[in-house]
Design a protein around this nucleic acid. Structure first.
Length: 262
DNA sequence: TCCTATGTTGTCAT
DNA sequence: AATGACAACATAGG
């Protein structure tokens, strides 16, 4: 699930449950999910508390009342669950923090593509990863600059976290559907105005999805998400939605609605 | 058995 | 140094 709006939900959930409580235990069932030695997580986090959080794209940062900042990435199948009793530990909660009040925060990750890391500075971490500003805050100028010299299809570039951090596969499809542009349009062939329409669609999709708390059923009727499947039909034209692959990722298109620019 | 899945990262070639 | 194409990563479920 987790693209920008879903991770925004996780942030709200985290802020509502897990801030300002002393951490008394750290458990990890599979060290492959940790980008640092397990002891480092235990030693640096136990006894501290989470003080504030920040989301940049799909990356989730948690500052503590000390040096370490925890970095989480949810991968394809991650989410957070706050629960009390050990018996309620979700099956795929491979990483668990226990708080002084007896509650637990579980980092669920069925497919184990998610991970945790430690850093001391969000800014330097962002620079190191060359992560762009969060797509929600990103300026048109920064977006345009990151895009304009690229020489491939528009969709894979939208998925590049250096361009607009937070955009994932369903959002890229939705943005291009809203902008009426085919995912295999070549950037070099596109006019600035067309790139601006993609930027505007990106902002619209982000704000809509956050407002609806990423509950797809609540999205406006003309959103692709309602028909983003192989037997779906375009809301506007009624034509079949086509499933294909672009940049190695499953891609849904309304060919009569989305213009290919090349 | 084979294929797919909402993501990133490493490798290799250009 | 950058960029692009693509495989690899790990796992469940249809």
């Amino acid at each position: 699930m987790p693209e920008l709006p879903e991770v925004e939900n996780f942030k709200k959930y985290f802020d509502g449950t897990s801030l300002n409580q002393k951490i008394v235990a750290f458990d990890c069932a599979d060290d492959r999910l940790l980008k640092q030695a397990r002891d480092l997580f235990s030693n640096q986090l136990i006894g501290k508390h989470f003080e504030s959080s920040k989301r940049i794209g799909k990356y989730f940062f948690v500052e503590t009342n000390g040096d370490p900042t925890l970095v989480m990435h949810f991968g394809m199948t991650g989410r957070l669950t706050y629960y009390k009793d050990q018996e309620d530990r979700p099956k795929f909660a491979h990483i668990v923090f226990e708080f002084e009040n007896g509650f637990h925060l579980g980092f669920e990750n069925k497919r184990k593509f998610g991970w945790m890391d430690l850093t001391t500075s969000i800014d330097s971490y962002q620079k190191e990863k060359k992560l762009s500003d969060d797509a929600r805050d990103l300026s048109w100028k920064a977006f345009y600059n990151a895009l304009k010299n690229r020489k491939t299809f528009i969709k894979p570039v939208l998925l590049d976290q250096k361009v607009a951090a937070g955009i994932g596969n369903w959002m890229a499809d939705e943005i291009l559907y809203q902008a009426k542009i085919h995912p295999e349009s070549k950037i070099e062939a596109m006019k600035e105005k067309q790139l601006k329409s993609i930027f505007d669609a990106m902002k619209k999709v982000i704000e809509t999805a956050i407002e609806k708390e990423a509950v797809y059923a609540d999205f406006p009727q003309d959103f692709l998400m309602h028909n983003r499947r192989e037997d779906g039909n375009c809301y506007h034209t009624g034509d079949d939605i086509i499933k294909t692959k672009v940049g190695g990722r499953a891609t849904y298109i309304s060919p009569s609605w989305q213009k290919k620019i090349d």
